[in-house]
C-alpha cells in the first residue's frame, strides 16, 4: 500500500478544519472503497482523517414524520433498523441487494453515497480514463462497455454509479445534510450526484472541505407498494446491469403517486419526472408501466456491448412496477423473479 499519515477527527468541526488545512487529506469511515482504490493506486491521499468515531451513528425521527440517518450508520444496521424495515422497506431491500454481509457491516451511509464507479478502466491505471486522470480520454467508449451507462453519458465518460442504496434514496426523495467551513447545508438527493459532462472526475456536488453528516428521509415511504428489482450476472454479490426502485400509492386502482429510479444505467441514480408524471392518475396496468418505461428511456443510447440494457431496463421497469402495484416486492434471498 501507499504511504500516508493517519489522524483522527475529534468532532465534525475538527474534521472540516483538518481536511481544509491539507489538500492531500481525505476522510475515511468504513474504508471499503477507499482502501481498495489506494491498493490499486487509483487514489493516493497523503493523509487519512479517521471520522469513524464521530457521533453520527443514530437513526432519529424528525418533526416532519421522517427519519434522519447519521452518516456513520453502517449499511447493515440501516437495512435491519426496525423503522427502516417497517416504513421504508424499499430502502432496506436496496441495501441488502448490494455488496456482501461483511461489506455492509463495514460500509457507512455517507460513504455509500461517495463510492466510486467500478468501471474497469477507472481501476486500471495502465489505461486512459478521464475520471482518474482528467484529459486522458475514455477507454470504455470504444472498449469493454457491457456494464456501462445508457443514459446521461458524455463523450468524456460512460461510467455508472454503483450503489443500490442510492437508487432507493433517490426514489424516496431523500435529502443529504453536509457540514463545511461555512456551516451546514442540505442538498436534495437528486442534485447530490452529477452527470459526467466534461468533468467526470467531479462525481458529486459535495465540496472537498465538506463532510456528509446525515441523510434525511421524508415521511412518505411507499411501504405498501414498492419493490427493488436488481438484474445482474449472478444472483448475489454483483453490481447491477439494471436495477429499479419503484414506489406507488394507489387509490381505487389508480396511481395517486409514483416514484421510479434506476441504477446501473447512468452516472447517478436516474429519475425522470416525465415518466413519473405519466404514471400519476393512470390505471396500474402493464400498458401504463410500459409507457412510463418508454418515456424514461426515450433518449437512451447504447454502446457496442451494452445496447441490450435498453430493452432490459424497459422490461425491468414494467416488472418492477407490476411487483409494486401487486404488493409483491422482490425478495433479496429467494431470487425467482415473478
Amino acid at each position: 500500500m501507499i504511504n500516508f499519515q493517519y489522524v483522527r477527527a475529534s468532532d465534525v468541526a475538527d474534521a472540516v478544519r483538518q481536511v481544509a488545512a491539507d489538500p492531500g487529506a481525505r476522510f475515511i469511515a468504513g474504508g471499503t472503497n477507499l482502501i481498495d482504490l489506494m491498493k490499486e493506486h487509483v487514489e493516493h491521499p497523503t493523509k487519512l482523517i479517521d471520522i469513524s468515531r464521530l457521533p453520527l451513528k443514530t437513526v432519529d425521527e424528525t418533526a416532519q414524520g421522517g427519519l434522519r440517518i447519521g452518516a456513520l450508520v453502517p449499511n447493515s444496521d440501516l437495512a435491519y433498523h426496525p423503522l427502516i424495515a417497517q416504513r421504508y422497506p424499499m430502502l432496506a431491500s436496496a441495501i441488502l441487494a448490494g455488496a456482501s454481509a461483511q461489506l455492509r457491516n463495514m460500509a457507512s451511509t455517507g460513504g455509500n453515497l461517495l463510492q466510486r464507479t467500478r468501471c474497469y478502466y477507472f481501476y486500471d491505471t495502465a489505461t486512459p480514463c478521464n475520471k482518474r486522470e482528467p484529459g486522458t480520454g475514455c477507454s470504455a467508449i470504444t472498449g469493454l462497455n457491457r456494464m456501462h451507462a445508457i443514459l446521461g453519458t458524455s463523450e468524456a465518460c460512460i461510467a455508472t454509479h454503483p450503489s443500490d442504496m442510492c437508487v432507493a434514496l433517490a426514489a424516496l426523495d431523500a435529502t443529504v445534510h453536509v457540514a463545511g467551513p461555512a456551516g451546514e447545508r442540505a442538498i436534495a438527493f437528486v442534485d447530490f450526484h452529477r452527470l459526467p459532462e466534461k468533468a467526470p472526475h467531479r462525481e458529486t456536488n459535495l465540496q472537498r472541505n465538506e463532510i456528509v453528516t446525515a441523510v434525511e428521509l421524508p415521511a412518505r415511504g411507499f411501504a405498501a407498494n414498492y419493490t427493488y428489482l436488481k438484474i445482474r450476472d449472478r444472483l448475489s454479490y454483483a453490481f447491477a446491469l439494471v436495477s429499479v426502485a419503484a414506489g406507488l400509492e394507489l387509490e381505487g386502482g389508480l396511481i395517486k403517486e409514483a416514484r421510479l429510479a434506476l441504477g446501473g444505467v447512468a452516472h447517478k441514480p436516474w429519475r425522470d419526472p416525465s415518466a413519473e408524471a405519466a404514471l400519476r392518475g393512470q390505471a396500474a396496468t402493464p400498458a401504463t408501466f410500459s409507457r412510463a418505461g418508454d418515456l424514461l428511456l426515450r433518449e437512451a443510447k447504447g454502446f457496442e456491448h451494452n445496447t441490450f440494457k435498453i430493452d432490459l431496463a424497459r422490461r425491468t421497469i414494467v416488472r418492477a412496477l407490476t411487483q409494486a402495484a401487486a404488493g409483491t416486492p422482490q425478495s433479496q434471498s429467494e431470487k425467482k423473479i415473478r
Binding site: 500516508f4 492531500g24 493506486h41 493516493h44 497523503t46 491505471t125 495502465a126
Partner: peptide
C-alpha cells in the same frame, strides 16, 4: 508491473 507508481509528493515516513 503494469501499475504506474503513484504520483504523490514525498510524505514523511509516519
Amino acid at each position: 508491473a503494469r501499475k504506474k507508481a503513484a504520483a504523490q509528493p514525498t510524505i514523511p515516513r509516519p
